[in-house]
């Protein structure tokens, strides 16, 4: 029966029943798809599984997962340790642009499951037939989709409070990528030791501050970055960067108006974000153009250092940060 133009579509009871039946069949098909096709697969899988412990308990996962999907903050760290996810939630273009070319290619080859982690297209995810799902999202968001994810593939969840090193280690273990991970970790530890030995003399007697702006920052504001890459410089290397009081929000969460750029004059050395070519990042450029910035003692004394931070939640990107920090510290005038 044809519906007339402008006639509202009204579902009659038989239509509703048909629709409900169709929905039920689709749901069943989805679950069956997620569970896999061949009857002998479970037995085979059981023989090659292992257990990992994560934020959602002890999970039985394939010993050598081949089709991994990453949701939320796990995507870039997983790619960094050599993982090749089949499906990912989208990362910002600016973050992807900071990756090495091979990692950008890996990201581009993956199917985008959603613009953000809380909008994952479960049908698309199930269609990828993943054998492992790795996710780091807020606990409340995970609680809403945990059963759906687990119905599709074994799911390893990390809470947002998981420290980046633990996250990288957990992803390496779950993704069976421990060899590459161990190399990166050793390289990181070597760089930290080298910087500590080279600049140990200034660590105790020089005050540092890391400042930043994001593309989302309000106009005319900047922030003191006590989280992110400078957290590594402070906590792992031992440089004297400011830190929020225990229990207080990070300093970086407070947008400071430009008129407070002058308060940076109390620090000996200022670090600020630059791109891979050493230019101030686009969001930070308005800060260095201000008269207040140009009048800062540290800026005039050559102690404002541009540092490249391609990421702070995986060893590969942190090593690149340490290389940049090492070069920046080497350019400090001799008297400090």
């Amino acid at each position: 029966m044809k519906r007339k133009e402008n006639e509202p579509m009204v579902m009659t009871p038989p239509r509703r029943r048909r629709a409900a039946l169709t929905a039920a069949l689709l749901s069943t098909a989805l679950v069956l798809t997620a569970c896999g096709g061949d009857a002998d697969e479970p037995a085979e899988a059981a023989a090659t599984t292992r257990s990992v412990t994560a934020g959602n308990g002890t999970i039985e996962i394939p010993a050598a997962p081949q089709r991994v999907a990453t949701i939320g903050n796990t995507t870039l760290p997983f790619i960094d340790i050599g993982g090749k996810p089949v499906g990912v939630t989208a990362e910002s273009e600016s973050d992807v642009g900071l990756l090495p070319a091979d990692q950008q290619a890996t990201y581009a080859a993956a199917t985008i499951l959603a613009a953000s982690a809380d909008e994952v297209d479960m049908e698309k995810l199930a269609g990828l037939k993943p054998d492992l799902i790795l996710t780091q999202i807020p606990d409340a968001e995970f609680a809403l989709i945990e059963k759906q994810l687990a119905a599709i593939a074994p799911t390893v969840f990390f809470g947002l409070d998981t420290e980046w090193k633990a996250l990288a280690g957990g992803l390496a273990e779950a993704g069976n990528l421990t060899e590459r991970f161990s190399q990166q970790k050793a390289e990181f530890e070597g760089k930290v030791t080298k910087i500590q030995q080279t600049y140990g003399g200034i660590a105790g007697k020089t005050s540092f501050v890391d400042v930043t702006r994001w593309s989302s920052s309000d106009p005319g504001t900047f922030a003191i970055a006590d989280i992110g890459c400078s957290e590594i410089a402070r906590d792992d290397i031992g440089l004297d960067f400011p830190k929020a009081a225990a229990g207080a929000d990070p300093l970086a969460w407070t947008a400071l108006p430009f008129e407070q750029i002058g308060s940076l004059s109390t620090y000996d050395v200022i670090t600020y974000p630059v791109d891979a070519q050493g230019r101030p990042t686009a969001p930070f450029a308005p800060v260095v153009e201000t008269n207040t910035w140009k009048a800062l003692p540290a800026v005039n004394a050559g102690r404002a250092l541009g540092v490249f931070c391609p990421g702070n939640n995986s060893y590969g990107s942190v090593v690149r940060y340490l290389d940049s920090l090492d070069s920046a510290l080497a350019s400090l005038p001799a008297d400090k």
Binding site: F258, E259, I261, G262, S265, N291, T292, A295
Partner: peptide, 8 residues
Amino acid sequence: IDQFAIRD
């Protein structure tokens, strides 16, 4: 520096 804060 403070003068810049006022004027700018």
